[in-house]
């Protein structure tokens, strides 16, 4: 079994966003980077598939040199090899451009299972996985929260408000994964040490003519006014008052 998992490097901004002065990007001065929770779960799923069925797994990102950090994190957890499609301006690639570059690279590599996140954390386009599937003429199920591989087929479950939709598709196939499919492991210390030495295959890619062009980022209104109800247990009567106001008691 050969499994591919595609991840994207994004700023890990817990407290809030600061924008650059041209409003075109999130200001990442003093900000760490992460891969999206959906993609972390896709990485975990890739490792589990190989642990169970044997074979190899590859992690791929289209991004800057610095994205080696995310690739090595995936290797430290148990992914076999990594590909970096180097594009320092990756934030401004639209989903079709990203998908074309990924599809071109992976087409000759013959993967059985290609995993993506359901949507990227920053731009949330909901597209790259489906577009790669189309370019490779492979079946694709999006937003899955369970995956079972058996005899060249896959059962993929999608959660809806009322229950589970179970899709059956023949491999090779593409799946876009949602957080909740598994609980990702932490890398071991040994994993982290050996991941530093794994060579990363690199290829420079250039952005094709875009279909979508970002003009600006902006913050939505956050209109709440804080009222401090009190310190410690002394605030309990005030909390009860608020519970009464909403009819909770």
């Amino acid at each position: 079994m050969k499994v591919l998992v595609c991840i994207k490097r994004v700023p890990d901004t817990g407290g809030g966003f600061k924008l650059t002065s041209d409003n075109m990007r999130v200001d990442t001065t003093n900000v760490g980077f992460a891969i999206s929770p959906h993609e972390e779960c896709a990485v975990e799923e890739a490792i589990r598939i190989i642990e169970k069925h044997g074979g190899s797994s590859t992690v791929l990102t289209l991004g800057p040199q610095a994205a080696q950090e995310q690739l090595r994190e995936a290797i430290a957890k148990g992914i076999t090899s990594a590909i970096l499609l180097e594009a320092e301006d990756y934030e401004f690639w639209d989903p079709a451009a990203t998908a074309h570059a990924i599809a071109e690279t992976v087409k000759p590599l013959g993967f059985d299972i290609l995993l993506f996140g359901n949507e990227s954390a920053d731009t949330c386009n909901y597209q790259v996985g489906l577009r790669v599937a189309h370019l490779l003429d492979l079946p694709c199920v999006t937003g899955i929260k369970a995956l079972e591989i058996q005899d060249g087929k896959a059962l993929a479950k999608r959660e809806t408000k009322d229950g589970w939709e179970v899709y059956e598709v023949a491999l090779p196939a593409v799946f876009t994964v949602k957080e909740g499919i598994n609980t990702p492991r932490h890398p071991s210390l040994r994993g982290i040490m050996s991941a530093k030495k794994v060579p990363i295959e690199q290829k420079k890619v250039t952005k094709p003519a875009p279909q979508l062009v970002r003009k600006a980022l902006k913050k939505p209104q956050e209109g709440r006014h804080l009222e401090i109800l009190g310190q410690g247990v002394d605030a309990v009567p005030k909390i009860i008052e608020k519970l009464r106001e909403v009819g909770a008691i």
Binding site: L226, I228, Q231, G232, V233, A235, V236, P237, I239
Partner: peptide, 25 residues
């Protein structure tokens, strides 16, 4: 940061406040 995104704030240890709230209810 949650205090910049909330309407009501209670500052303190939840492990004391929540049990006291339960007892009162």
């Amino acid at each position: 940061p949650i205090f910049q995104r909330a309407d009501y704030g209670v500052i303190g240890d939840l492990h004391q406040i929540v049990p006291a709230l339960i007892a009162e209810l």
